[in-house]
Design a protein around this nucleic acid. Structure first.
Length: 702
DNA sequence: GAGCACTGC
């Protein structure tokens, strides 16, 4: 047992450091440290952040909020919480939490820190992500997704379990991190026993400092600490003239690098799946033709909807004496890191979400990236040795045209869910809420209006009983409303399945080389009254076929999607039980089985309804947008009224996932929205008026 | 008659 102590060469040296346990027993487990602990300790002490340890601890002692800037490789994510622990700053029964924008990061970082502390994961160190809580009463350091900490705040707005909250990767400005910053700015001033550390890659540091210090009544001094990263230099090249066609330029650049530059993998950033698959095909065809005596190469596409085994291939070693050429979306900018990349090709574009509050539509648009993004992409070339980055735009463009940082998500999103969350967190005055970047007032108004129509907020903007329930669910407000009322329509089991299916990526596969077969497979599940009902059929069939991946494959269904829908469904079912919402079904033989489901749909989605006009097009109610049924629909006729799940703006305006409803139901379940006095003149209004008269007659006769 | 940047609860 004592062997490792005596023979360990690092031990004597360690004992000189007063902040490292001078006893050879691990204070968390009571056991002697393992060999691995000392090995990892040596690595830890070589991290750049280690030199800033005393400075950091001093600043945290003096200040409530500290901003820490550190590039990749500085070690901040793993070491900063440990500094705090070692110093014994943690109060009894309190914890440290460190947020991450992504689940995998929360999981892998917590495992690393558990190893460094020589403790089993889930005891002193753990993580919490959706569907998985690997913590215990012993846990004092927890890594969590930012969304998960936000959920916790909803039941404990002071986040009173924690005495240190670290928001990591704050520069990414996710919705959840932005909301957390907004509430923590107040909480940190209210709670004597709370410290806050904001960790970021260089760019926005000053902005975080300003934001947290600024307050008319309680200004704070927010110090900033800078930690160098550990990356290799990357030489950046620009094109002398702007490129007309970035795809052609990209292909040309790949070929030039492959022909002329020493070995080392190539990473090309493109915007989407189709573009990537096309380019891979072109490269496979062109390289052997254009490169004399080409070295071996392997072209690898990389995007999120690619099956996991195909994604994994980018991590395999390159062909012997050759190179990998990876053609990726933004997934390779932050989510996945591929060592061995030496050359980055950056055309300077990505698909970005934008929200237009006027038409209430979120859409994806190919847009120029920001300077910060371009720098991040370039950095991908310097992970293992010095690299090169080829920007397919001019230096002038970089300096003059690109914006500094990508607009935070909160400025590009529909905020219905954000507003519901903030209300639940007790924020009364949303218009004056201190957002780091305040969203457009119109976007907030749209969100308030939607929540008011759904009955989540009353006319004073107060959260209603229904709204409180809705906020409990990790769903868009329309979906949670529909789910909560579904027991009244005797179909909560079915709506649970539909909501789960709507919450995951599209489950229907349609490979380019088997489109007919895929369509035929889909036809077997199709319900002619609506796509929502088709989704229900698919879910049933998946369960009846014992969740078999092969069955999914044969039926052109995405197994990953269905499995995840099933997960979501279980989570929602548990919440329904917790909230005493009964799980009920209408008898399947009854004529009302599908009618009830469609009525429940109307209760959540009455604002997403389209009316068939005499010219054969659909017009969305109130917004009066001319739309077409998305070609993926399964209706066998064109119903007068449909609800839709999504408004898709591509080559045309489409409504996707549509189900037939009756006009009467709109008047019955959403009379406040369909009040005819405030309804825009048109065919939809005339149809509704006819229905009103028809409805009133029998009543008068009674 | 067509798509699906990326995350997260």
């Amino acid at each position: 047992m004592g062997k490792s102590e005596k023979t360990n060469p690092y031990l004597a040296h360690l004992l000189e450091d007063n902040h490292i346990e001078s006893s050879s027993l691990n204070k968390y487990t009571g056991k002697p440290y393992s060999e691995k602990y000392y090995e990892l300790l040596k690595v830890r002490k070589a991290l750049p952040i280690y030199d800033k340890r005393e400075e950091f601890l001093q600043l945290v002692k003096e200040s409530k909020v500290v901003v820490l800037v550190g590039d990749t490789g500085s070690g901040k994510t793993t070491q900063v919480p440990q500094f705090f622990l070692e110093e014994g700053h943690l109060e009894k029964n309190k914890m440290i939490v460190c947020t991450q924008p992504r689940r995998v990061a929360a999981m892998s970082v917590s495992q690393r820190v558990a190893d460094e502390l020589d403790v089993p994961l889930g005891e002193a160190v753990g993580y919490t992500i959706r569907f998985e809580d690997v913590t215990s009463p012993k846990t004092i350091l927890k890594y969590a997704t930012d969304g998960m900490l936000l959920r916790e705040a909803m039941s404990d707005p002071q986040l009173s379990r924690y005495s240190l909250i670290i928001l990591d990767e704050a520069h990414e400005r996710t919705l959840a991190t932005d909301i957390l910053m907004g509430i923590l700015k107040t909480v940190v001033r209210q709670r004597e026993d709370l410290k806050l550390v904001i960790m970021s890659a260089t760019l926005d540091a000053g902005k975080f400092q300003d934001y947290f210090s600024r307050d008319p009544e309680h200004p704070l001094t927010v110090p900033l600490i800078n930690v160098p990263g550990r990356v290799y230099p990357v030489e950046v090249y620009y094109t002398p003239e702007p490129e007309k066609d970035y795809l052609e330029a990209a292909i040309r650049t790949v070929i030039q690098i492959h022909a002329n530059e020493p070995l080392g993998d190539i990473l090309l950033f493109l915007t989407g799946e189709e573009e990537i698959e096309e380019t891979c095909k072109r490269l496979n065809h062109d390289i052997p033709l254009l490169v004399k005596d080409s070295k071996p190469f392997r072209i690898l596409p990389l995007y999120s909807s690619l099956p996991p085994n195909a994604q994994q291939r980018v991590f395999e070693p390159p062909p012997s004496n050759g190179r990998k050429i990876i053609v990726a979306t933004n997934i390779a900018e932050t989510s996945l890191t591929i060592d061995g990349v030496v050359y980055v090709i950056d055309p300077g574009f990505s698909k970005q979400k934008i929200y237009d509050p006027r038409v209430r539509v979120e859409s994806l648009l190919v847009s120029p990236i920001s300077k910060a993004s371009a720098k991040q992409r370039a950095g991908r070339a310097g992970r293992t040795r010095p690299g090169k980055c080829f920007r397919l735009f001019t230096e002038q463009t970089f300096k003059k045209d690109l914006i500094e940082t990508t607009y935070p998500e909160i400025l590009r999103s529909n905020l219905a869910n954000v507003v519901l969350t903030l209300k639940k967190l007790g924020v009364d005055d949303l218009v004056h809420f201190d957002f780091m970047d305040p969203p457009a007032p119109e976007t907030l108004m749209r969100a308030l209006e939607l929540l008011n129509y759904l009955g989540a907020l009353d006319d004073e903007g107060e959260l209603t009983q229904l709204g409180k329930l809705m906020a409990e669910f990790p769903l868009d407000p329309q979906l949670s409303k529909m789910l909560i009322v579904s027991p009244q329509f005797q179909c909560s089991n079915e709506i649970l399945s539909i909501v789960a299916m709507l919450s995951v990526p599209n489950c229907f596969l349609r490979p380019r080389d088997a489109q007919k077969k895929a369509d035929a497979a889909k036809a077997r599940f199709t319900h002619s009254e609506g796509d929502h009902l088709t989704l229900l059929n698919v879910y049933y069939a998946y369960k009846h076929n014992e969740e078999d991946p092969n069955w999914c494959y044969q039926n052109y269904l995405n197994y990953r999607s269905l499995k995840s829908a099933d997960n979501v469904r279980s989570q929602l079912e548990a919440m329904m039980n917790k909230l005493s919402l009964p799980l009920v079904s209408t008898d399947f033989q009854s004529a009302e089985f599908y009618v009830n489901i469609r009525k429940a749909l109307v209760n959540g989605f009455f604002m997403q309804v389209a009316h068939l006009e005499s010219n054969g097009y659909y017009l969305t109610v109130k917004d009066n947008q001319v739309v077409s049924l998305h070609p993926s629909h399964g209706l066998d006729h064109k119903p007068t009224w449909v609800v839709y799940n999504e408004f898709v703006l591509t080559s045309r305006k489409y409504i996707r996932t549509v189900t037939e409803i009756k006009g009467e139901w709109l008047l019955e379940y959403a009379s406040h929205y369909y009040e005819l006095a405030n309804f825009p003149v048109g065919e939809a209004k005339r149809d509704l008026e006819k229905l009103t008269i028809k409805n009133k007659k029998p009543r008068k006769q009674k």
